[in-house]
Computed example of a mutant assay.
Amino acid sequence: MAKKKIIWITIISCILIGGIVYAASIYNDVTTTIETIHEPEIRKVSELRTTEVELVKKEPFSLLLLGVDEREGDKGRSDTMIVLTVNPTTNSTKMVSIPRDTYTEIIGKDKLDKINHAYAFGGIEMSLDSIENLLNIPVDYILQVNMESFLEIVDIIGGVNVDNPSSFQEGGYTFKEGVIHLDGEQALSYVRMRKEDPQGDFGRQSRQKQVLQAIIKEGATINNLWKYKEFLASIQENIRTNITFEQMIDIQKGYKNALDKIETLSFEKGEGTRIDGIWYYLMDDQELTNVSHQLREHLEME
């Protein structure tokens, strides 16, 4: 159930305001927000498709959640890259996280580098092209989230509780093992730590999902539903997507049951190494091929 909620917030970001999204009194606020975060210049059809996905016909689609760590004076890098494929025929969703240090071809740069550098080099488009090339699947839709500013939501809802698996220090804070309460700044430091984590980037991804899940849980409470304008303001400031309001409605109507069965794929057999003094994650070729095949099959491309 927790995974189902995480995916639904990814696809329909405005679910943060819970059931009141249907209230006529805020309908205009919601539609205005979605119109604002919609980026029509982001490509509509992947080069790996001949035609655009028709959601009204309930065709399988893919979505990329791109979490960008934007800081002052820095365009940022995509620290979180989660690809989803959704198939309403089999009522299932597959999800895979791409390690940010993955050594791969950066499409448009004609070089091999960390995949999270694609965003710094060429923004959303280069990230889309590079991820498609790595996984050999079309990416139909994208949600770009400014991870640093988006965590202001943590303060809006009065903080979140997470179960920290091991104690560590980061950003001037000490995070003890066990259930801890985090405000916005603490949450940001909590999800950024990587060097002290025995799982490295995989542990970092796990903490990001922890905080996102906690935000959803707290954001849906009765007390926080009354703060929907603050939620919408944060969404409007920190999310960009090529999904239109009409497409969000189509997804809600035709793909909801696909979230009842979620399978998480992962990259675990690769290894880290240094090339010219820089740390990279080298994927296992067979594992990458297997994941790609499963995603393509789920999109009914094989």
Score class of each variant (00 low, 15 high):
L65K: 00
L64E: 07
E35F: 10
I157R: 04
N116C: 06
M126F: 07
K111R: 15
V139P: 02
E54Y: 09
T51N: 14
R100V: 06
I153A: 03
V30R: 07
T51C: 08
E52L: 05
I153H: 08
S62P: 05
K109H: 10
T93D: 00
T50P: 09
E59H: 09
E35S: 15
A23H: 11
D79T: 06
T33G: 07
N87W: 02
A24E: 07
P88Y: 00
L112E: 14
Y22D: 05
N28M: 10
V53M: 09
N87K: 00
Y141S: 07
R49F: 13
E132R: 04
F121M: 12
S62N: 09
D113S: 10
E52P: 05
I157L: 13
I37T: 04
L135K: 08
I115T: 10
S78N: 00
R71Q: 00
K44I: 09
K114Y: 09
N28A: 07
I34Y: 05
V145R: 04
R100K: 05
T31R: 13
D101Q: 02
G76K: 01
S46C: 11
R43G: 13
G76H: 00
D29I: 13
I142T: 13
P88L: 00
T50C: 09
R100A: 11
D69I: 05
V53A: 03
F121D: 12
K75Y: 00
R100F: 08
N133E: 12
I42N: 08
N91L: 05
Y22S: 10
N87Q: 00
